[in-house]
Nucleic acid binder design. Sequence first.
DNA 1: TTGTAAGCGTTATCAT
DNA 2: ATGATAACGCTTACAA
Lengths: 360, 360
Amino acid sequence: MQSIAWKKNNLNFTAKIIRMSNQPETTIHDIAKALNISASTVSRALNDNPLISQATRNKIKKAAAEMGYRPNVVAANFRTKRTNTIGVIVPLINRHFFSSVISGIEEVAYEQGFAVSISQSNDNFEKESKIAHSLFANRVDGVILSIAMGTSSYEHLKLFSERQIPLVFFDRVVDEINAYKIVADDFRGGYLATRHLIEQGRKRIAMIGGPQNLRIYQNRQAGYITALQEAGLQPDDAFILHNSLTRKDGTQAISKLMNAAIRPDAVFCANDTTALSSIIYLRENNIKVPEEVAIVGFSNEPFAEVVTPSISTIKQPGFEMGKKAAELLIRQINQKETPDYFETITMPTELIVRESSVSK
Amino acid sequence: MQSIAWKKNNLNFTAKIIRMSNQPETTIHDIAKALNISASTVSRALNDNPLISQATRNKIKKAAAEMGYRPNVVAANFRTKRTNTIGVIVPLINRHFFSSVISGIEEVAYEQGFAVSISQSNDNFEKESKIAHSLFANRVDGVILSIAMGTSSYEHLKLFSERQIPLVFFDRVVDEINAYKIVADDFRGGYLATRHLIEQGRKRIAMIGGPQNLRIYQNRQAGYITALQEAGLQPDDAFILHNSLTRKDGTQAISKLMNAAIRPDAVFCANDTTALSSIIYLRENNIKVPEEVAIVGFSNEPFAEVVTPSISTIKQPGFEMGKKAAELLIRQINQKETPDYFETITMPTELIVRESSVSK
DNA sequence: TTGTAAGCGTTATCAT
DNA sequence: ATGATAACGCTTACAA
């Protein structure tokens, strides 16, 4: 990164000559000169500082508009050490859940005068770490993130905690770090999904679970196990598989389950992606869904509704989670002091029953 | 925005006292002092300026690391008037096509030492305009964008062109503005889709088209018409509908088509969303796809593959388009001079044949 | 190869 | 209610 900077500066050398013609930006000093007042007055007026009289304020704003003044926020950020920007790191922006969260974050951030800078880690630790360093270097006022599946070291997040830059986790949270955390009720989601399958008369309910280093997947599984036990069903290790929940992982998992001596009559999948690949696998192998195997997914991705059979799933309140995360972050940014204790806020999940799980 | 800034500064007043304990950031001056050299040498060394000897460079970097030095890029950006950041505005990050483009942009941007700031307009003109102002105020080095459906005034983009901030359009481009444009071959896409339907023996091919103020939808339709004419089929205005291509629009459009005196035996939809809602409508009304009505969509959204019947569609090279857009933008940023003429780069589209269009 | 010093545009302190 | 001035941390001519 550093060496690149140097190369660029070399290029700039010739560029500068060419750009001579560019009109320079109007600054508060230009306005001050034009109006025969001081730059500080201009600055105050433009920021609606109440010390400035209404009359001069109007005069200044009018002049600013006429002169095509554009505040240089980089200069202001530099001076104030604030950027009015919050950084967001998500594994993948292309997941409906994550983009819902982002929309929620944006809604409250914009309302409060913050810009939002979004980056995706691609579920890759290296990338996440790079992004964290970049956000830090760019002095974002706070960060909202859901960590990558591949992340197990949290060194890169110390950047923020050490300098008291507020951090809010959502969904994939880190227990070891003290911060506000917004999670969906994954336990209840797993519980509801499994209980629903039990209510449909299923007895041999398998689970395709996610990486157990992530709390959300632990919780979904815990809900599953609790529901089984509550119904007097014995959880069976052979029926619980773990992987990274990609399309391919799902296919492998369902294939393993269906080729075992004892086949499940239902599968609870820890996300919709593996629910989908399970359904496709079963269809290709002429195993009827839901008649022979019932399926429930997790997250309510848009495709879950339109696939045939449509996928029963657990809905997470992504938009609301995003709003909440942004609210908590901005409150911390504005208060500046570190809160005494950090809550973990759990938001309700909801079962959506569709075709893939309903015995006729 | 301005008045908000003032309120925040008020809050900071008390905050500052509380934060007294914060250790101040290490600066290049601290390093200089510690090593008894000048700050400029430190700056040069850290930027790998070849003027600095290997020995002192190593010494400085070591000290910087030990002292926990973190470059203040806001200060550097302020000084150099560059932010090494490119802004991206897309209608919706949650569309597979757009997130593919974003991934392509990120790939080359990161490689070249640029950060990427992503925003979504939600297909809303006001939001797009706000974002443009925010990106401008934050002095991004260049912007890549696909305009919102609701955008018809381009005042907000003059911000960039007037100050020679390079702009690259992709997909939804603006004819009136002189800039590099990266588009998929929409004409050919429309042509291929329609020709495919003709080859399947369809005679009454309708089209659900997009807003005609957007060139891409004009082109998709032009391809459709050309294919029809080439086959000696007469384009029929009653068979061509226009709307905003949402799920709901698609349902309304297909319903109108199917309730008319003369029903189509095939529909080319200008996006996959309307292809999907058409299929759902047809299924609900017991009209067989593809037997009675064949469907082709556009964009190859992930759901197109997994829906039943799977949707034949046109694939756009989103990732490649993103890479190309970023390359062109960064070239302009580095060269700084305005190119003499701007190319419009058309990237190939491809027909993907699936179940929704193949007569058995 | 290194140092000196000016300056980027803004905000904030202190004075009036 | 307004002004003068310093300062933020960095880069970069120019000097040595």
